[in-house]
Design a protein around this nucleic acid. Structure first.
Lengths: 155, 155
DNA sequence: TATTGTTATACTCTATAACTATA
DNA sequence: TATAGTTATAGAGTATAACAATA
């Protein structure tokens, strides 16, 4: 049983390591014909996933980074015509960051590239196995986020 | 079905983001009472997992980083008495990097801290769900590594 | 006075290039 | 000449601190 747990952690770590490294991202970006770095892709994907404009602070929280990091990424992408800033009508201090049509296109490509790797890896799986992985990873994600959030607040 | 896939990728990304950030690692290290950074922990865990001394190049390949990065980490850990270098008897150019007793202790703590988070997250799961996640992540890891390795070679 | 975001700066992690030594 | 590893350097990614503007 404990061996199972160790295997789970090891497998997760292995996938994470392959996805995290720069070469993997570069290869994916090249395949997609884009010149874009990892933080850019994360912001774009997040906004596409959200389906509506979001504040800098909200994006930072979702990506688990500090807001200055998001500010710089947003500035760059705004300069490239992928994002646009609009004053938040309900709070004069805040902005809403939204995807432009161009940004939406690029975000979709980014998401597609990520998805495609999983799709290929699972191409021979049974529908049951696919559904199970989705369900279990969803549970794992929810519960791990809650645990870590709680512990970080304590510390 | 495609929605399933998108959810899977999103869930994986969410877990990855929480684990990757510095604050999470720092919190874990503090809980474990250690002052150790992320690359250190990765090398120690890899060697513990391997169960025997390994070459620098082999470690680098397993962690998906370049060898100079491993060299520096190993130098540091050697200076702290956690690793030891022994000339490879079969190849005078190479070294075998092994855990000292102290390094083994620290590696076990590192691994335990990681494992404990997964364990807590899955504490209420059925044995079936746990076993399924282990099996499916194992498959995913194997196939994704193969795909990415193949594509990186082509590029 | 607290909060949203930005600017400025520094640190961590990782990659590339140039070199040494053995094969 | 090819390979294992190291040293030196540079880059990507992220955090912290100090500040501006609005609430």
């Amino acid at each position: 049983m404990d061996q199972d747990l160790a295997s789970t952690v090891a497998a997760f770590r292995a996938v994470m390591l392959t996805l995290k490294r720069a070469k993997t991202h570069d290869m994916m970006a090249t395949v997609a014909g884009m010149r874009i770095d990892q933080p850019d892709a994360q912001v774009l994907i997040h906004l596409l996933d959200a389906g509506e404009p979001r504040r800098v602070g909200v994006i930072a929280q979702a990506l688990h980074v500090e807001s200055p990091h998001v500010t710089r990424t947003v500035n760059k992408l705004e300069g490239q015509g992928m994002l646009e800033r609009v004053r938040d009508p309900e709070d004069g201090r805040a902005w809403r960051i939204g995807l432009t049509p161009k940004g939406t296109d690029v975000a979709q490509v980014c998401m597609r590239v990520h998805t495609e790797i999983f799709e290929t890896a699972m191409s021979t799986w049974s529908p049951q196995d696919r559904a199970d992985l989705t369900r279990l990873l969803g549970k794992l994600s929810t519960e791990m986020s809650a645990i870590l959030e709680e512990r970080l607040e304590k510390a």
